[in-house]
Amino acid sequence: MLRYFFSRLVTTVLIVFGAMLLLFLLTAVVPGDPAVTLLGPQASPELVKRFVSEMGLDQPIHVRLWRFFANVLSGNLGVDVVSGRSVWSLVLNVLPDTLILTFSAILLAVVTGVPLGIYAATHRGSLLDNVLAFVSVAFIAVPSFVIAIFLLLIFSIWLDWLPVLGAGRSGDFWDAARRLILPTLSIAATWIGFIARLVRTSMLEVLNEPYIRTSRAYGLSERMVTYKYALKNACIPTIAVLGLGLGRLLGNAVFVEIVFARPGLGRLIYGAISERNFPVVQGAVLVVVVLFVLINLVVDLSYSALDPRIRRDGAGGSPV
C-alpha cells in the first residue's frame, strides 16, 4: 500500500509540474510581443510596462521559468493586471462557490443514481429499467449547458418558480439554496443516468458471483444480500468513474456558472479571458488543475483501499 501511495504521489507531482510548465510556456510561445498580445491592443503603455516587469517579460526565459516556479511554489499566483489584487485572493473568493456547486451536483447524482441503479438491477426488464436505459443515454449525450438553458427557460422564465441568476445575497441561506437548485440539476442530470447505469451493470455482475449464491444458500435475506454484500462491491467501479469524471464535471460547472451568471472559478476564468487578464487565467487554471489532480489522487487511493486487487501490481498511472 505504501509503495502504491508513493508512486501515485510522484505521478501527481509530475502532473502538476507538467501543468505549470505548460501554463508558463503559453506566455513564451504567444505570437508577437507577449505583453501586447496578452493585454490586447487597447492597453495603455503604462499598463504594458507594469505587466512586462511584473511578469518578468524583459528577462531571459530560464530566469522567468525559475521565477514562475519559485513564485507558485511559495503560494504567489501573480497579480491581476487590471485591479492589482493578488490572483490567489481572487481565486479564494470564488472557490467555495464552485466547490459547493460541484459537490452538491455529485451528491444529488449519487443519492438518486445509486438507488435507481439498484432498482433497475433487481427488477431487470421492468418498465423503469427500460426507461432508465434510454434516459441515461439521452442525458449523457446532451451538453450540460443545453440542459441548463432548458431548465432556466422552463422553471425560471415560463413557470417563474425559481430565481434566474446569481448566487444570492450573502448570508441568506434559503435564497442561496434556491439559486443552487437549477445549476446543480443541470450538472447532475448527466450523472444520474450514468451512475444508475453503472451501478446496474456492476450489480448484475456481482449478483452472479458464487459468494452471493452462497450467502443466499445460507438463508440470508434478499435485502441483506443486495445491500450488504452486492452493493459494497458494485460501488467500486462507481467511485472510479466518479473520479475520472471530475474533470468533466468541473468543465460542466464552468458552463453552468456562465449560463446562470453564478460566481465561481469558471466565471473568473471566462471573465479574465474577455478582459485579457492573463495572470488571472493562468492562476485560476492552475488551481483547477491542482484541485482536479488532488481529487483524483484521493479517489484513486480510496479505490485501492476498497479493492485490494488494484494495489497488487504496484504500478502508478492509469490502469489500462
Binding site: 496578452l38 474533470g247 464552468v254 458552463f255 476564468i269 485579457r276 492573463f278 487554471v285 488543475v289
Partner: peptide, 17 residues
C-alpha cells in the same frame, strides 16, 4: 498529464493566449 487536465479548462487557457 494530458488526461489530468480538465480539457475544457485547458482550452480556455490556450484560447486566452
Amino acid at each position: 498529464v494530458i488526461s489530468s487536465f480538465p480539457s475544457l479548462v485547458l482550452a480556455l487557457a490556450i484560447v486566452s493566449v
